[in-house]
C-alpha cells in the first residue's frame, strides 16, 4: 500500500488481526431521484459554462459594430441558435433553483427527507415557470 488513504481503511478486529474496514454502500447499485437532481446541477453548471461563450460573443459583437452584431443576431435566429438559447435558459433556471436550495441547505434548513423530496418538485415546477416566463418575454 502506497497511498496514505488506503492505510486509513485498515483496522484491527477484536482479536487483533488486521482487517480491511468495510466501505460504505456502493453507489452503483442504486440510484434515486435526489441523485439525479444533484447530477443535473453539475451537468447544467457545465452547460451554462459553455453558454457563457454566447454571452461574451454578444458583448464583443455589440462593442465591435453593427456588422458583427448582425452576424451574432443571424446565428441566434437559426434553429441551432434557438436550440442553444432554449437549452441555455432551461439549464440556467434549473441551476439557479437548485443553487438557491443549496444556499438554504447551507443555512442548515430543509434537510428533512420529505422536505427534500417536496423541494425537488418545487424546483422542477419553478424551473418550468421561469423558462416559460423568459420565453414569453423573448417572444413578446
Amino acid at each position: 500500500m502506497t497511498d496514505i488513504r488506503d492505510a486509513q481503511r485498515i483496522g484491527r478486529a477484536s482479536d487483533g488481526r488486521l482487517i480491511e474496514r468495510p466501505l460504505s454502500g456502493h453507489l452503483s447499485v442504486y440510484i434515486n431521484f435526489d441523485m439525479v437532481m444533484s447530477v443535473g446541477h453539475r451537468v447544467t453548471g457545465c452547460a451554462i459554462a459553455v453558454g457563457t461563450i454566447v454571452m461574451v460573443w454578444f458583448l464583443v459583437a455589440l462593442a465591435s459594430g453593427p456588422a458583427a452584431y448582425d452576424t451574432f443576431s443571424w446565428w441566434m435566429r437559426t434553429p441551432i441558435g434557438y436550440l442553444a438559447l432554449f437549452g441555455w435558459s432551461a439549464a440556467l433556471w434549473y441551476h439557479y433553483c437548485v443553487g438557491v436550495r443549496h444556499l438554504i441547505w447551507d443555512s442548515g434548513r430543509m434537510y428533512d427527507k420529505h422536505v427534500v423530496e417536496r423541494s425537488n418538485l418545487v424546483i422542477l415546477a419553478a424551473t418550468a415557470v421561469l423558462v416559460v416566463l423568459t420565453w414569453l418575454v423573448v417572444l413578446a
Binding site: L62, Y69, L92, Y96, G99, T134, V138
Partner: peptide, 28 residues
C-alpha cells in the same frame, strides 16, 4: 458568488430576453 448571482442572473436573463431581436442601436 452564488449569492451575488441570485439578483444579477435574474436581471441579466430578463434584460437580454427583452432585448432579443432588438436593432443594433437599441442593444448598444
Amino acid at each position: 458568488t452564488s449569492i451575488a448571482l441570485v439578483p444579477l442572473a435574474v436581471w441579466f436573463i430578463f434584460s437580454v430576453a427583452h432585448l432579443a431581436g432588438a436593432p443594433y442601436a437599441e442593444a448598444r
